[in-house]
């Protein structure tokens, strides 16, 4: 079940909570999951259960405080070039440096997408890829609309990358 960690984290990140709030929501979702284990009879539904719980807690945080802090893009991007981080090993060869630059640009363009696309893609990029049921639970959108939205958001992202000459 801990294989669902990236899904829960993605849901929290999709809602742009501060680090402290993100950690607490993540914890709350897992603690409650453990508490209700006996009642979640179909293992296939665990992802949707966790995603939905995380989403509701995210909405409560947003409602309670308005201290919705935007994740700082430069801060995230800095991590690529920070010394001593695991990512540093990416820079160890020129080829890796080019790859790292591509990842950085991709992330930057992703962060600058409209809020709806950014949210959807942040959840879709969890590892392993979440089912549409999980995505629906994570974002409160109909399963049937996810496919077309996904296609459109990814196309939009590609267009941004092309405009920047990054593809």
């Amino acid at each position: 079940m801990e294989g669902l960690s990236p899904l829960v984290w993605s849901v929290v990140r999709a809602h742009r909570l501060s680090d402290a709030d993100a950690h607490e929501v993540y914890q709350t979702a897992w603690f409650r999951f453990a508490q209700h284990l006996g009642r979640i009879r179909e293992p296939g539904k665990a992802g949707a259960w966790l995603a939905s719980t995380a989403r509701h807690e995210c909405l409560k945080v947003i409602r309670s405080s308005q201290r919705l802090t935007l994740t700082d893009d430069p801060q995230l991007l800095d991590r690529v070039s920070e010394d001593g981080t695991p990512e540093q090993s990416l820079l160890d060869s020129e080829e890796a440096a080019a790859q790292s630059e591509r990842v950085r640009r991709l992330w930057q363009e992703f962060e600058e997408l409209g809020e709806r696309c950014r949210q959807l893609l942040r959840v879709l990029m969890a590892t392993p890829p979440p089912s549409y049921q999980d995505v629906s639970a994570a974002l409160g959108i109909a399963v049937g609309s996810i496919g077309p939205l996904r296609q459109r958001c990814l196309r939009r992202l590609r267009a941004r990358l092309e405009a920047r000459g990054a593809m």
Partner: peptide, 12 residues
């Protein structure tokens, strides 16, 4: 493209 995003998220 989604897979590239997935790899980027795993790093960043």
């Amino acid at each position: 493209l989604e897979e590239e995003l997935r790899q980027a998220a795993a790093v960043l």
